[in-house]
């Protein structure tokens, strides 16, 4: 399990915002800032962060829907940014993606059968009979049972949960080695989400597929993931085993995320860690810690002028805060109760 299937090296991606009428006012937004990340074979890796933190961009870069400005992506030690033609196509067979919105990710003019057969047609897998067998097996695994009941349906006849099952089946018919799930359950209700999580766990066990699970839902990450990476403004701020990250965080931003999880019946204690208390105006964005402006515990000179690097704070647990260990110790002593997740 310790050999990475996917490595990114100094992955850097920016977007240019639309300028004004005369072309002025364009701004460069950094989506990913020198991201180094290894994802191990057979694990479910959770990438968490708020909206705009760059987590979806990361998924889109890995699957070559977009290209980074700088950096390397190595899949099985192969530089995928250089792939063209047939080699790119065989790479596409190994890596698949599931999108967030099941209402947008399926072509309304195709039946379930057409949608699920397309990947097999593109990659010329099997004959007619074998394709049908693969289809039925995959549909059963995602819970579209009996397959014969759904195979002729068009997407507008299906519910959101059923559509997302179709989207998962489409990603899995080729039996890829790496699956990117980009917030696959954020538009579905909780009971359906739980069922889909079990489908992912089942895929992991049956086919040994590695899953990159992009989410803003910490309880989902806790339930599903082996390891979790926390992304803030394109910077990886904390990385480690999911249990550790969610119960013994080192980075103030992770603490803030945990504070943001609604706690049932505890309105008298608004926050547990109290790291998101102020919004500091001014200062240079390009220098210093990306979280500096919102961090309560930030110390003026160092945090605003020096970019912290990811350091190992416990075996297999990385954090990028100068004062991480101090804050961690303080919080672990004072916090009476952990999160209810």
């Amino acid at each position: 399990m310790e050999r990475p299937i996917l490595k990114t090296r100094a992955l850097y991606k920016t977007y240019l915002t639309k300028g004004g009428f005369f072309g002025g006012g364009k701004k460069r937004i950094v989506a990913l800032h020198d991201l180094n990340l290894d994802i191990f074979r057979g694990e479910i890796f959770g990438l968490v962060g708020e909206s705009g933190s760059g987590k979806s961009t990361f998924g889109r870069l890995i699957i070559r829907l977009e290209d980074p400005d700088k950096g390397e992506i190595l899949f099985e030690d192969m530089d995928i940014l250089r792939l063209r033609g047939d080699r790119l196509r065989s790479f596409r067979r190994e890596v698949q993606i599931i999108f967030q919105d099941p209402y947008q990710s399926l072509n309304p003019y195709l039946s379930v059968e057409d949608i699920l057969k397309e990947p097999l047609q593109i990659h010329k897998v099997g004959d007619k009979k074998e394709r049908m067998e693969i289809l039925e097996e995959t549909m059963s695994m995602v819970g579209l049972v009996p397959p014969s009941a759904y195979i002729k349906a068009y997407t507008h006849q299906l519910s959101g949960g059923q559509r997302q099952r179709v989207a998962i089946a489409r990603a899995m018919v080729l039996r890829p080695r790496f699956l990117i799930a980009d917030e696959p359950t954020s538009m579905l209700d909780a009971s359906i989400s739980a069922q889909l999580f079990d489908i992912f766990l089942n895929f992991k066990e049956t086919y040994g597929v590695t899953i990159l699970f992009i989410t803003h839902n910490l309880s989902a990450a806790n339930y599903l993931c082996d390891r979790v990476g926390v992304l803030y403004k394109g910077h990886l701020v904390e990385l480690g085993r999911s249990q550790e990250i969610l119960t013994r965080p080192y980075h103030p931003y992770t603490m803030a995320l945990l504070d943001a999880v609604p706690k049932f019946g505890r309105c008298d204690i608004p926050t547990e860690f109290g790291t998101l208390q102020r919004q500091f105006e001014g200062g240079d964005e390009s220098l210093g810690c990306p979280f500096f402006k919102r961090c309560q515990r930030a110390k003026m000179v160092r945090c605003s002028n020096e970019l912290p690097v990811l350091l190992e704070v416990e075996p297999g647990h990385f954090s990028s805060c100068f004062y991480g260990e101090e804050i961690h110790k303080e919080v672990m002593e004072s916090a009476a109760c952990r999160l209810g997740i």
């Binding site: 829907l65 596409r92 698949q96 993606i97 919105d101 399926l106 072509n107 003019y109 593109i122 989207a167």
Partner: peptide, 26 residues
């Protein structure tokens, strides 16, 4: 830029296939 076209791209569909099968019917 709809996800279903991006999904087809991610599956390795050719330009011709994306245009004829995914864009044209729509």
């Amino acid at each position: 830029n709809r996800p279903f076209v991006e999904a087809a791209k991610a599956l390795g569909a050719s330009h011709l296939r994306i245009m004829m099968r995914h864009l044209l019917p729509n």
